[in-house]
Design a protein around this nucleic acid. Structure first.
Lengths: 284, 284
DNA sequence: TTGAAAGCGTTACCAG
DNA sequence: CTGGTAACGCTTTCAA
């Protein structure tokens, strides 16, 4: 017990005893066994980060910010990707819980919050909310993003504005609302087929844009779910022999770096990704 | 004991007993406590990934590949960044060891292998070797990268080829050797001041390139340590009112996506990053 | 095939 | 201030 107390700087220990312990610990190159400590304290100082895919720079940036924020407090991050698969996400969370993580930060792929109601570990949702779940959440004001982006296109003179809205997520729903509000404000409206559901990557953007270009009267401006989608859209436009932004203007949402070095300057709305990660970690 | 055996599918257990145990476990929603199991087995099924900075897409890609490869075997990845700081790297490794990780994958910032000699946990070095250390290592043939890149510039007609060689790492040393070999092969040589030590990001590339442009006879081609450095170099060249690749041709090494959408097509050598991550994980 | 006993390395509790 | 005892939840060992 004297050893345990000395090493943890407990007050209940005489200066001399403490010094003796510390000296001997150094001699033996003693390092605490975190597994044993965790077993008795019930804390692991491990936080699970559950994201769809670390390859997307968006989530990589979140992971970095979370890890950096947690590190000074002695926490480590265990990563777990789910590939946008709701079922696998649940399995992964269960495993993390049985590993006794102290908390979870989740960018969820669930359709609703049902499965999280019985979750006994503290958790914070990041980026995406879950309908019908009153949980801690850190994210961007997606409606405002959508509004700003669409408004920007209108300012640039676009009148027929389409929306590659990304996958079925709370984020895309918010952005779409903002898109609609901006159009409304300027007495414009989305023509039929102007809102296209896509994936989140450049391939999805490419496909979606082709669909838009095939319309009888294609758009002259497109608000894209994120930058990769915008890049894919750009490829489709250029391939069709059209010009960006003369024929079709594009705007995305910041998920990549160096977008200012693109062949065609790509307008983008910054969503403060690292800040999101930092705040989620702090909240947790 | 019957319970423990039943849950682990041990052979030493009667079918009926096993079924009874499984049934009751399901009723109670029993989940194994990994901390307790780890304490007795000595295994955590945790692997530490020690990298300088997850923000660089290069390391994010490695992290993804490592985690994806390890997951099917039940391993999870604990991340730890060191910010290219050798001392902090050592501290982090010690903490991971006291957390009883089963193994480590390390992109090291050490100058030599001294500190790793007494490391008792299995580990694999990734991306960077350490002088004087006979360790498991997975990386790219950097000399070949340097040769290919430089040779490419020569094929394009460049004759005065400089090298923004990046930071002091085994990777940059290899690439520089390849650069020199390619020059030699074509009876060219690096003029004085043509090899500039830089950091690894675009800011470093920008500064380094400015230095090259200030020379009496600036280069007409530059082999850059990686893509971010090349992007920074590009900015410096354009700012100087010169053209890429007419006045100065550039080539980088693949650390980013979408480089084919850059304003000026940036030549790049692919280094198979995910493959590296996968193989390091398998080796471990 | 079953299960009792010991122990993994630590900390909580409490009596001295 | 000091330190003995029990316990955390599991697996290994070994006897029945």
């Amino acid at each position: 017990m004297a050893v345990s107390k000395a090493l943890r700087n407990h007050t209940d220990i005489g200066a001399e005893t403490k010094e003796r312990v510390l000296k001997r610990a150094a001699e033996l190159n003693y390092r605490i066994d975190w597994v044993a400590r965790s077993l008795v304290t019930g804390r692991t100082f491990l936080v699970g980060l559950v994201v769809p895919d670390l390859m997307q720079t968006f989530f990589a940036e979140i992971a970095t910010a979370v890890a950096a924020t947690l590190a000074p407090a002695g926490y480590h991050v265990v990563i777990s990707h789910t590939g946008e698969n709701a079922k696998e996400e649940l399995t992964n969370i269960e495993i993390l819980v049985s590993r006794k993580v102290d908390g979870l930060i989740i960018a969820s792929a669930q359709r609703n919050g049902k499965s999280f109601e019985k979750l006994k570990v503290p958790y914070v949702l990041i980026d995406r909310t879950l309908p019908g779940l009153d949980a801690n959440y850190v994210g961007t004001q997606n409606e405002e993003i959508g509004f700003l982006a669409t408004d920007h296109l209108i300012q640039q003179g676009c009148r027929r504005i389409a929306h590659l809205r990304g996958p079925k997520l709370s984020t895309s729903a918010g952005r779409e609302r903002g898109y609609s509000k901006a159009l409304e404000k300027h007495d414009l409206k989305a023509c039929k087929g102007f809102i296209v559901e896509t994936g989140h990557d450049d391939v999805a953007g490419y496909t979606g844009m082709k669909q838009l270009l095939a319309l009888d009267a294609p758009p002259d401006g497109v608000f894209c779910f994120n930058d990769p989608v915008a890049i894919g859209a750009m490829r489709a436009i250029l391939e069709a022999g059209l010009s960006v932004p003369r024929d079709v203007a594009l705007i995305g949402v910041a998920n990549m770096h160096y977008s200012d070095f693109m062949a065609i300057p790509l307008s983008t709305v910054d969503q403060g990704t690292s800040l999101m990660g930092r705040q989620a970690a702090q909240r947790l």
